[in-house]
Design a protein around this nucleic acid. Sequence first.
DNA 1: ACCGAAACTGTATGCGCATACACTCGGCGG
DNA 2: CCGCCGAGTGTATGCGCATACAGTTTCGGT
Lengths: 368, 368
Amino acid sequence: MAKASTVYDVAGHAGVSIATVSRVLRRPDDVRASTRDKVLASVAELGYVPSANARGLAARRTGVLGLYFPNLDAMEELDDGEFDASSLVEVVQDIPDSGLVRPPNLYFDEVLRGSELEAWRQGFALMVGVGRVAYPADMVNDIAGRVDGMAVLAQSIPDSVLQHVSRRIPIVLIAGPRRGDSYDHVSVSNSEGMGALTTHLLDSLAVTDFAYVAGPDDSPDGAERYSGFRQALHSRGLDPDARPVLHGGFSRQRGREVATQLVNDGKLPRALVCGNDQMALGALDVLRAHGVRVPDEVIVTGFDGIEAGQTSSPRLTTVRQPMVDLGRAAMRVMLSRLEDPKQPPISVRLPVKVLLRESSEGPVDSSS
Amino acid sequence: MAKASTVYDVAGHAGVSIATVSRVLRRPDDVRASTRDKVLASVAELGYVPSANARGLAARRTGVLGLYFPNLDAMEELDDGEFDASSLVEVVQDIPDSGLVRPPNLYFDEVLRGSELEAWRQGFALMVGVGRVAYPADMVNDIAGRVDGMAVLAQSIPDSVLQHVSRRIPIVLIAGPRRGDSYDHVSVSNSEGMGALTTHLLDSLAVTDFAYVAGPDDSPDGAERYSGFRQALHSRGLDPDARPVLHGGFSRQRGREVATQLVNDGKLPRALVCGNDQMALGALDVLRAHGVRVPDEVIVTGFDGIEAGQTSSPRLTTVRQPMVDLGRAAMRVMLSRLEDPKQPPISVRLPVKVLLRESSEGPVDSSS
DNA sequence: ACCGAAACTGTATGCGCATACACTCGGCGG
DNA sequence: CCGCCGAGTGTATGCGCATACAGTTTCGGT
């Protein structure tokens, strides 16, 4: 590592020109086999690794796709802790589930996985950025300068910034509402999914007594879901406005608070429809603690399909978002845009799955 | 996006030289305020975003740190599915927990989070790569050419490749065993943690009848944990070799298989010590299905501290790895190495926490 | 009003690679 | 035996920026 070797070093060592070295690496078939072997031997000998910067500069593309997340509260909590190795083991009664120490966002992780997978399959590297509240613009700019295209989750970026960077690279919006119609967009069927779930409760389980636990007011996903809920009720002649809406925050803790309130007020509905899984799990925590039987007394449903809903007891009925596919789709759309920059804006809408489990359907054999 | 503008465009637009533009962006204080404003106005006007490639080339550093994961079986499963939007909603009884459709690796996700956090805090971007079995060398090389330093998880890379790229950039190994003594290394106290947990079972719960469910043979973490288990027994005068060892694969399914076997053979031990949480959860599945009471009849323990162990019933006693800190520590070590390339190899060992929960301690109030 | 230092800005160069183009060389048809 | 062609290789250039260095302006002091 004394000094990274360059094409020139390799060329000198192999007795060829730098052009030949470059060809051996980029278009091996254009080089005579014997020459190629000579060069490759030198590459190995010198530990040569091409500089992506130089390559990117010369080729006018970086070969990198970007993925930008908004910052979820959970991440910030990590900021403080210094790791301290004073003792290598500590035996403790379990730390309380703060919901923060263990970041709960399966959601992003899966989008990330999907993106990573698709990007590499298409021959691109992936760069990840998680927004810190303080200086989103700088980070976004930084990433934008490093990539050939960038996917942005929900509304993690102010419009002005988005507009600025979009003059350099294509932008794909993931989830969230459309923003203007100049960007490509990938989202899931939030309203249809919640609608289908609600309809199931209405038609198959004959539920009419609902309460809805909404997400944060500024969540477009949350809004779409609630809208789906309302439409389902409306289509069956029920008045959505007659159903109580409890405002949450998409956190487990918030779900607990809402449920606690309902219990205390003695206003438990037949079905508690939650805007996401975290809140539903929080509600389950409270109901279980109060001895309320789910689903016999109260049906609870979520949205997202996170893993924890699969191992909770009872297991959570929910709407599964194809989060991995969201990431994959975003990357594909981006590549398609790179290939043909002037095609009209693309908008992909991914299907969801309503998963019926014990929190709504009653006991099911879980011996699997 | 017609044609990304450059320093030259901005310089021309603002009526200054490119050097001044560059300075405005890099060292604003070296430029007169009035000039700076002029330039910034042009930057905004033109939608200028500096090319990280050019910058990196000129500055001889990329400002990016790399993180490379081995490929876990789970990822591959995603390869096939095309997303198909023929229907936007589908209502289904829950799909069986294949353990594949929902990638279970909280582990990597958290290391990633930690890395991402620390990298950005230090002013670096993060690039992620997940190894595909087919061509790890190419991917590693590719990343190595793009970053100032790379962290590698466990043994995801052949020694030869590692050696090659390490001539260009510093490498930090995360988890896994040391490899030679030329690389920096970050790991957790696997053996100490498992030792402490085992000792607790021995001393506080008076268990002597153990069975150990090991991980895959090629997992160094698994080996260290088993070693900690053995040492604990040995230190209490018990013979480790008298305790059955069941070989697993770190998957939930494997945990189920092992547990099923034990049940069928009527050889359930007092305590089932598992090499990771996934297997432990799989064992819980089976024990519950067979009506075996945990922890009254059988104590089950895991290792890792994944979230699912926190919501399982009973909640899982385990050893919590500071996975987020692993990532953070790796990045810090890397930066320290970049600052002073010739300091002796660093080896950081992070502490773990033994978390006592209901799968070993009996009923606990879980109303929280 | 003059001088020198300090503050500021411009000019020139190179980072490491891809690639257009020029060139060499061997084989082939005429 | 000559000229032509294509495979293979070398030469020269530019990608967009940072920065050393040179040049210019500003400003305090006298």
